[in-house]
């Protein structure tokens, strides 16, 4: 199903060639492919239009890797990242733009993947938590979250980290007030907020030390 620059796999951090999820995803591709051929014949000449239920070929750039895959218009970026690309760091929470668990960066700015149609992400750079690591090496924000014990159950943490990354790209040296505002789109049921704010401050220092 996915074509990642010619090689197929389970997403950026996957140490194996083909994951179970990646395999399952690709098995469905044959039948879906027929739908696209049919749809192409009926597309209107001037307006790019995709009929309901018809899978449509999109090219998504996720963490610097190009994926060509088939999506339905109604599928959200959150769904496609998790269920089609097997990239499960991005979490489903409320799925209505209230909790922030699904936060990704689109062109470097934090957004909710649950309220973004996958077809709308075409032509933009998507960055997920998987894209903030270098292999098994955690990124600056992840390191800071561990150092400051900025989580309890951890379910909101991927979204918190990506939101913090977005904030720090826009404001490399935020004040506490800017951190509180910048992180206000992410809920933590465990209430680890004070530690999260501390971690974002620490991440700003770690990023500076790393020369970013």
């Amino acid at each position: 199903m996915t074509e990642k620059d010619g090689k197929e796999g389970c997403g950026d951090g996957c140490p194996h060639g083909v994951s179970r999820r990646g395999f399952m995803t690709r098995v469905g591709a044959g039948t879906i492919g027929l739908g696209v051929a049919a749809a192409a014949g009926t597309a209107e000449a001037t307006v790019h239009e995709i009929p309901p239920g018809e899978p449509h070929r999109v090219t998504l750039t996720v963490n610097g890797t190009t994926h060509r895959l088939l999506v339905e218009p109604r599928e959200t970026l959150l769904y496609v990242l998790r269920e089609r690309l097997g990239m499960t760091a991005t979490k489903p929470g409320c799925e209505r733009g209230e909790c922030g668990a699904c936060t990704v960066l689109i062109d470097g700015a934090a957004r909710y993947a649950c309220l973004t149609l996958a077809v709308e992400a075409e032509g933009h750079e998507v960055t997920t938590l998987e894209g903030l690591t270098k292999g098994e090496e955690p990124g600056a924000v992840q390191r800071a979250f561990m150092d400051e014990d900025a989580l309890q159950c951890g379910y909101c943490t991927p979204g918190q980290i990506v939101a913090a990354e977005g904030l720090l790209r826009a404001r490399p040296d935020p004040t506490l007030e800017e951190i509180r505002t910048g992180m206000s789109g992410n809920l933590c049921r465990c209430g680890a907020y004070v530690h999260i704010f501390r971690a974002v401050k620490k991440a700003s220092v770690l990023r500076k030390d790393a020369g970013r």
């Binding site: 307006v47 218009p73 109604r74 959200t76 769904y79 149609l117």
Partner: peptide, 20 residues
């Protein structure tokens, strides 16, 4: 999941108006 819909991404305002 959201119910199915047709998706259109017009390139001009005129096309968008006609579709809407």
């Amino acid at each position: 999941m959201i119910s199915s819909f047709t998706y259109a991404r017009p390139k001009t305002l005129q096309e968008a108006v006609e579709l809407l």
